[in-house]
Design a protein around this nucleic acid. Structure first.
Lengths: 172, 172
DNA sequence: CCTTCGGTGAAACAAAGTTGCATAGAACGC
DNA sequence: GCGTTCTATGCAACTTTGTTTCACCGAAGG
């Protein structure tokens, strides 16, 4: 285990232009919900033998279609109860400075998700902290201490209505 | 398996006030990164036997600390390439109407995450769609078709810089 | 028509998860 | 202080699951 995760998923190389057939999609659909499902059970669900399922999973894993297998933890249980959204607007949008910002935001463990977006803001962060005091300290370090941050808007989550990373698998 | 997932995690009953010791936190830290890690390996990492690890995982699962075990899929591989943020502002904030909105948003498969927040907006949605045309259709159905939606602002993600649900496990 | 290649299922095998049991330590009451 | 109880542990057997091997089938192409 010498992989260097900055925390969060490394978002590896873009998946090779793999063609996913109906079997693959059905398998992914199951794994997205519960990746502890036995391959035999998956096999029955999709009408395939266990080894066939296993080969497909292995292929999709090496191809980067399956990026990670993780447990989802209740933040409350860890005392990390507050989820916060931040829209960040930067002053200078040169490529170098954007990359710099990406690296800075990603490096913070409390930053669960970070997106570079178009629109009224440049970055959107999803942050999880134990208390508002911690968030306050974080803003001081991350935003006020960064002279390329023009403005940021904070939204505090009162309810995590739906949380997931599941992607619709339908061919639609 | 007769659980009824609306898609996304059901966010079960609030975890009982379980006390998590250092062992638990270390185990969670590992499972958050890779829940395919053998229990024996985890045991070595935390200085515990495999059955001990297994019992703790089982307890945390039934207690709701571990909410789900899932595979993380690359949206690109499924042709669901566009990630979009939406800030939704509603007109009337009665309890009933908020609950109604929560249900409506949660029911949509393309809505990966939905939060009820304080601040300039009421809801924040994270949506994944194959194309802008699909998003346009979705807005028509979800926002313009809902007469309690006052306003919504869209942000399109150009880069998923960091994506994860990992919660810091440090006792801090 | 034959060959090749990708994919499959059945069976054997290896590795992981799971259970039962005896034990060690902490908290408590006597 | 002594014994009881409760909790959690490790070890070892056991079960389930993942993995590999191999022969076979069907489609694509010469």
């Amino acid at each position: 285990m010498q992989l260097c995760f900055t925390e969060g998923f490394p978002l590896p190389q873009p998946s090779k232009s793999t063609v996913l057939d109906t079997f693959d999609r059905k398998i992914l659909d199951i794994l997205q919900r519960d990746n502890t499902t036995p391959q035999r059970t998956i096999g029955e669900a999709v009408n395939l033998s266990a080894p066939a399922v296993q080969r497909r999973i292995k292929r999709m894993t090496t191809d980067g279609v399956i990026q990670a297998n993780v447990a989802v933890i209740d933040p409350d249980a860890l005392g990390q109860a507050i989820t916060i959204f931040v829209e960040v607007e930067v002053i200078s949008e040169t490529a170098a400075q954007i990359e710099q910002a990406k690296r800075e935001f990603s490096a913070v463990p409390e930053v669960q998700q970070c997106y570079y977006v178009t629109g009224a803001a440049d970055f959107i962060l999803i942050i999880v902290v134990p208390s508002m005091a911690d968030y306050e300290a974080l803003t001081r370090r991350l935003f006020f201490g960064n002279n390329n941050v023009k403005r940021f808007r904070t939204f505090v989550a009162m309810d995590r209505v739906k949380v997931g990373l599941s992607v619709p698998t339908s061919t639609a």
